[in-house]
């Protein structure tokens, strides 16, 4: 089975990774498989994999991604196993079920 580690393959990735290759583990993002370096900062690992938007806002539905990378801005919120967490304050581990919050729910 081919290793899937880029979430989208449409363009050059916005970040270059200087660190030595780490063993990758399988997680899912919105149901699609994704292989991320084990123990890496989750927000950084998603950015490196080409995931820019982590959620849509509850107010306007606008896309958001990491902004401060230090746990202060809460823009990198993502659902991990059904619980909304700050991706920049978490580490990658095998089997994470990640869901990007959909934002505004239209009635």
């Amino acid at each position: 089975m081919p290793r899937i580690w880029r979430f989208s393959v449409n363009a050059a990735l916005p970040f270059r990774d200087l660190s030595p290759a780490a063993p990758r583990v399988r997680v899912t993002l919105d149901g699609a498989p994704l292989d991320l370096p084990v123990g890496a900062n989750l927000a950084a690992a998603l950015l490196a994999a080409g995931v820019g938007s982590f959620r849509a806002t509850p107010v306007s539905g606008a896309p958001r991604g990491p902004f401060c990378m230090m746990g202060a801005c809460f823009d990198c919120l993502i659902e991990v196993g059904g619980v909304t967490r700050q991706a920049c304050m978490m580490q990658v581990s095998a089997g994470l079920v990640l869901t990007r919050p959909k934002g505004r729910v239209t009635e």
């Binding site: 050059a12 990735l13 916005p14 970040f15 270059r16 990774d17 200087l18 660190s19 890496a40 900062n41 950084a44 690992a45 950015l47 490196a48 990378m69 230090m70």
Partner: peptide, 12 residues
């Protein structure tokens, strides 16, 4: 922080 903690550099 991305550089320090994760070794990531923004390309463009």
């Amino acid at each position: 922080i991305l550089l320090k903690a994760s070794g990531l550099v923004a390309e463009r």
